[in-house]
Amino acid sequence: MIGGLDFSVVRDNLSYFFIGRYPKGPLGGVGLTLYLAVVSLALSFIGGLILGLLSVSRNRLLRYGSMAAIQTIRGMPLLMVIFWMFFLLPAMLGGGMTASWTIIVALTLFTSAYMSEIVRAGITGIPKGQMEAAISTGLSHGQAMIHIILPQALRNMIPSFVNQFVSMIKDTSLAFIVGVSELTQIATQINNRTMLYPTEIFIFIAVIYFIICFAFTELSRWLERRLAYRKAI
């Protein structure tokens, strides 16, 4: 049946798939997908770190408060978080935010909750003796965390972070629902216009997503092996 497919629709719209209306308009397509994913991941790293540290804080209020927030976000579908942001952010900030940034905030909020679990697992994975040793050399709890525990924990977390990036790229496809012209939105747009080639269009973008995500999945595996090797010596 594959023989019956006509991929000329992909060829005719190739630049539109990859960069959208750029340079006549804003960047779209694969370019925007990567932009959304990279920016949101960088911000979620910070968000995850903060939430993760709060969730191992010795202050009970902070610990339980942050854990409740984390669990609530994790209990929601990403789509729900996106709708909430679309609904609340403009009201809170007075509408100065573009749709792309609203999506970035939603992705960041959502992913930070997952990242914080990685951070927490990373921190609790470092033997307790290290913290005790650090404190006994005169460092404060905070200093010990920043100089001794975190650097080790972060190194162990690298593969998980790369995995989160893969999830992030997949998650950016939801930006379609609010009309941000990333790859999936561009695909539906072209599909709406041409009507006859949904099969070809969706296979094509699935393959594009696969190539990007698979490359990063492999990178994460390679990092994991390397880390394991470094630990072994």
Binding site: V166, K170, S173, A187, P198, F202, I203, A206, C213
Partner: peptide, 18 residues
């Protein structure tokens, strides 16, 4: 390694050709 949303679209709109 493919977004679920794209898979949903594929099965709903695109599967009739395959």
């Amino acid at each position: 390694n493919t977004p679920l949303l794209v898979q949903i679209f594929f099965w709903y709109f695109g599967s009739y050709k395959v």
